[in-house]
């Protein structure tokens, strides 16, 4: 069953008096028990998608979508309190900088108690409630692998190392027993060993608690160990979408290929000391977005047609937006006869 369904999400931001489409017709969906990776360079709008889902965008930004639904309920149309309820119970978000995402002046214990839904507390008197809340906190924190729980609950954010804070964030996110966890680049800037801990924690949660995860990152290597499906984002446009292994083996979109090529560990055939390939230029700024396919000016396969925005095309659970895809003969694809790809 599809939990979160986003179809043609467009976000317009006013910049120097002009409306700019920071997100242009982004589509994304997450099914139950799925780990979906959302990949893109920094500045491609990953965090904006997360904020659009969680509803914490500034009110002056214009957000439109054909569909932005949670279990079939339209998130854009519902009232503030209904949306808060969904965010409180069903969707949980963890952020890339745990130190900044926790209040520096409140002890972590108090912040944890605050995010326990009231329904979980059955006691009548506040001291009993408090004890119950503490029990839940202990259980959760132990579950995510924090060793000194007591110290953690009695500390302020700045007194703890980054990885403990991130685990704490995860525990806090999970306390409401959500169905979907949105992880916004949770391993950025972490050491490899801590990174691995966080990744395996996510993986275990998915396996044992049937948690769906939207994993936002630019770290392909980390994603490759957990993701089932992948969505590639470039400059506010979704360029490709599909099962991870299939995309990895045969990317359709030139950008996906460039992205995969930039990670040497995905290319066993790569000879030592051979140059790494990369696309020329940099991701365009919001003020200078190209028309049509936004990769156009940098794309090695670009042709005249690329000034028109390509429509999404689907084959075999995979979706891409490109006029001249790789690994597919365009004509065959249009005829719908293409079956040569292994999915």
């Amino acid at each position: 069953m599809i939990l979160l369904d986003i179809r043609n999400l467009t976000l317009e931001i006013e910049s120097n008096g002009v409306l700019v489409k920071a997100l242009d017709k982004v589509s994304l969906s997450i099914c139950e028990k799925e780990i979906r990776a959302l990949v893109g360079e920094s500045g491609s709008g990953k965090s904006l998608i997360v904020r659009a889902i969680s509803g914490s965008l500034p009110p002056q930004w214009i957000i439109t979508a054909d569909r932005l639904t949670w279990r079939g309920q339209n998130l854009l149309k519902m009232s503030k309190s209904e949306r808060q309820k969904i965010m409180r119970r069903d969707i949980a978000v963890i952020f890339q900088d745990p130190q900044a995402a926790l209040d520096p002046s409140v002890k972590l214990g108090a912040q944890f108690r605050e995010s326990i839904p009231n329904e979980f507390i059955n006691s009548r008197w506040w001291w009993q409630q408090r004890a119950e809340q503490n029990r839940i906190a202990w259980a959760q924190l132990t579950r995510v692998g924090i060793k000194d729980v007591k110290k953690c609950l009695n500390s302020y954010v700045h007194e703890l190392p980054d990885d403990v804070c991130q685990k704490f964030m995860i525990a806090m996110a999970l306390v409401s027993q959500p169905t979907l966890l949105i992880a916004d680049d949770p391993t950025r800037g972490m050491e490899t060993s801590t990174k691995r801990q966080i990744m395996s924690l996510c993986k275990n949660l998915n396996r044992h608690s049937d948690l769906s995860i939207l994993f936002v990152s630019h770290d392909l290597l980390a994603i490759s160990s957990i993701a089932h499906t992948i969505t590639v984002l470039y400059s506010g446009q979704t360029v490709e979408d599909g099962p991870f292994d299939s995309v990895r083996r045969k990317p359709f979109h030139p950008y996906s290929k460039a992205l995969l090529d930039s990670a040497p560990s995905f290319r066993p055939e790569l000879q030592p000391k051979s140059p790494l390939t990369a696309l020329k230029g940099t991701i365009p700024t919001l003020q200078h977005l190209p028309i049509g396919c936004r990769l156009g000016p940098r794309c090695p396969r670009a042709q005249k047609e690329c000034v028109n925005t390509p429509v999404p095309r689907t084959i075999h659970k995979r979706q891409y937006r490109c006029h001249f895809p790789l690994h597919i003969d365009a004509d065959e694809n249009l005829d719908g006869k293409y079956e040569g790809i292994d999915v």
């Binding site: 969680s54 509803g55 914490s56 969904i86 965010m87 949980a92 952020f95 900044a100 605050e114």
Partner: peptide, 14 residues
């Protein structure tokens, strides 16, 4: 403008 306010909002706290 701090992140922790946005984070608290995403936790669905009124």
């Amino acid at each position: 403008e701090q992140d922790y306010i946005a984070a608290a909002q995403t936790r669905g706290i009124p």
